[in-house]
Structures are given as structure tokens and as C-alpha cells.
């Protein structure tokens, strides 16, 4: 009699465990939901035109460099975005300067303070813009690959749609304003080549 009680309790316990351990779905239904794929191109378009261009806060490049010299920790914490650990961070910066060289794929610009900047206009790749914007989180995506697809689509929008339009009337010697992403390493902000991946370039009236 006692054994039957024991077996009943064990069976109930096993049932409760199983009930809370697994769930069943129709595979076809699940696959159709899964196949309703996330459109990275539409997402990137919206991210660029409605997110990055409208709401990204950018700091003036010379001001940022000055702040990193005074208190790098604070500057990196306040203005930098980074995904993991490490000494590097991405920043969204803006700058105004004169084009001293217009080459295939890049503009060489010198600011009023004498800082030389290289603005990549063709080779816009990597995660710098996505990460510097601070608008997209890894946890919003199922996999790292999906997260990286955002960068891929975003870079394509900027590289193929936005920047070519911006560059239409720009020639050597023009004063331009640029907003874009830059990667800085703590403690190594001096004498670095400052490469900016632009999100927007415009001819300045100055």
C-alpha cells in the first residue's frame, strides 16, 4: 500500500516536471513564422533616416580630443559606445574643415585647429557606425550574425545612397561639415590618424 502511494507521488512529480520542461508546436507553423524574415534593408533604412540622422548626438572632434587628454575615462564613458571590454570605443563626432585632397574613396580635411581628418567615402564597412550611434543593441537580435547584418545593411545605405548624394557638389578647397563615426583607443588618442566613417557630409557656408 505504501509503495503505491510512493509511486503515485513519483508519477505526479515526474508529470509536473515534464509539463514544465517541454512544449509542443506544429513544425510547419513554426517554420512559417520563422520564415517571415526580418528585413534588414528596411530596418537599416529606417535606422539611418529616422534614427541616426535625427537623434544621434555628436561631439565636435577637437572638443572630444581635448576631453580625452584631460580625463579619458570620463570622455570615453560620456561620449563613447562600446560593446565589450577593452580600451577602444566608438564615438559619433562632427567636424568642420577645408578639403585639402579629394581622392578616390576619401577626403582629406584640415580643421581650423589644424587637425587632419581622413573621411572615408567609399570603403564604409565594419561596425563603427552602428556602434557609435548607440541606437542598436546586441540583445535585440537572436544571433551575432543578425546583429552584424544590421551593420552590413546600414553601411550599404550610407555608402550607396546617402554619401554619393552628399558628395555631388563638393570639390577640393570647399569647407565642409561632416558627422561620422570614429574609433579611439584610450591612452592612444595622440598622433592617431583620425579616420571618420561619415553618416552625413555637407558643404559649409563658412
Amino acid at each position: 500500500m505504501k509503495k503505491s502511494y510512493l509511486y503515485t507521488i513519483l508519477a505526479i512529480l515526474l508529470g509536473v516536471l515534464l509539463y514544465n520542461s517541454v512544449y509542443f508546436e506544429k513544425l510547419s507553423k513554426r517554420n512559417s513564422q520563422k520564415n517571415a524574415k526580418f528585413d534588414f534593408n528596411t530596418f537599416a533604412d529606417s535606422l539611418y533616416y529616422n534614427g541616426i540622422l535625427k537623434s544621434t548626438q555628436a561631439i565636435e572632434i577637437n572638443q572630444l580630443l581635448a576631453l580625452t587628454k584631460v580625463n579619458a575615462d570620463s570622455a570615453f564613458k560620456t561620449y563613447g559606445n562600446r560593446l565589450g571590454i577593452g580600451e577602444s570605443a566608438y564615438f559619433m563626432v562632427n567636424a568642420t574643415g577645408k578639403i585639402i585632397e579629394k581622392n578616390e574613396g576619401e577626403l582629406k580635411v584640415i580643421t581650423q585647429n589644424g587637425t587632419t581628418l581622413i573621411i572615408d567615402t567609399k570603403y564604409i564597412f565594419g561596425n563603427a557606425i552602428r556602434d557609435a550611434s548607440g541606437l542598436v543593441k546586441l540583445t535585440d537580435f537572436k544571433t551575432n550574425a543578425d546583429f552584424n547584418k544590421v551593420s552590413e545593411a546600414l553601411n550599404t545605405v550610407i555608402r550607396e545612397k546617402a554619401i554619393p548624394k552628399n558628395l555631388n557638389n563638393i570639390i577640393n578647397g570647399n569647407i565642409i561639415s561632416v558627422t561620422g563615426a570614429i574609433k579611439l583607443k584610450k591612452g592612444k588618442t595622440k598622433n592617431q590618424i583620425l579616420n571618420i566613417l561619415p553618416i552625413k557630409i555637407s558643404k559649409s557656408e563658412q
Binding site: 514544465n20 520542461s21 517541454v22 512544449y23 509542443f24 508546436e25 506544429k26 513544425l27 510547419s28 513554426r30
Partner: peptide, 14 residues
């Protein structure tokens, strides 16, 4: 399980 058109999902406990 393709042949049964069944997907078995697992909770954290499972």
C-alpha cells in the same frame, strides 16, 4: 521532427 511535423521546445528547466 520533420516526419511528424512536430517541434519539441525546451524550457530552462527542461
Amino acid at each position: 521532427i520533420q516526419s511528424l511535423d512536430l517541434f519539441i521546445g525546451f524550457t530552462v528547466l527542461g
